[in-house]
Computed example of a mutant assay.
Amino acid sequence: MNSPADVPVALSAFLRGVERRGVVLAELQCGRRETGEIALAASLRAFRQYASDQPMAQWPRGFWSLLAAAPPLRQAHPEARWPQDLDWLADLSDADRMALLLRLAAGLDEDDAAAAMDVDQAAYRAALTRACPRDDAGQPDPQGWRDLAEAVQQHLRALSPERLAHLSRLRETLVLGTDRRAVVPEPEAGDAVRAPSSTPSTAPAVDAPANTRAPVGPRKPAKPFPWTLAVVALVVLCALAAVGAWWWHGQQSRLSAPATVQADGAPGAQGLADEAQVKVEALSSDNDAAARFDAAQGVLTHPDFDLLMDPQGQALSQRAGLLAWYAAAPQDRQRDAAQALAAPPQEAMDVVQ
Rank of each mutant, 00 (worst) to 15 (best):
S3T: 04
A10G: 00
S12Y: 00
V23T: 08
V24C: 05
V24K: 04
V24P: 00
V24M: 05
E27S: 02
Q29W: 01
R33C: 00
E34H: 05
G36H: 02
I38Y: 01
I38L: 13
R48K: 09
D53W: 11
P60L: 09
P60Q: 05
R61W: 01
G62R: 04
L67R: 01
A70M: 03
Q75M: 15
E79R: 11
A80N: 09
A80D: 10
R81V: 01
R81S: 15
Q84T: 06
Q84N: 09
A90P: 01
D91R: 11
S93M: 06
L100K: 01
A106F: 06
G107L: 11
D109L: 04
D112V: 04
A113K: 02
M117F: 01
D118H: 13
V119M: 04
A123H: 07
Y124M: 10
C132K: 11
P140A: 13
G144L: 02
W145K: 12
A151S: 04
H155W: 10
L156V: 02
A165D: 15
H166M: 15
R169Q: 13
L170G: 06
T178P: 04
P185M: 01
G190D: 15
A192W: 08
S201Q: 13
A203E: 15
A208I: 00
P218K: 11
K220D: 13
K223I: 11
V231N: 03
A233I: 06
V235W: 03
A239F: 04
A241W: 02
V243G: 09
W248P: 01
W248V: 12
T260C: 11
Q270Y: 10
L283W: 02
S285E: 07
D286M: 07
D288P: 00
A290W: 12
F293A: 11
G298V: 06
H302A: 12
P303T: 06
L307Q: 14
S317T: 05
Q318P: 00
L322C: 03
Y326I: 02
P330K: 08
D332V: 10
D336M: 15
Q339Y: 12
A342E: 15
A348K: 14
Q353H: 14
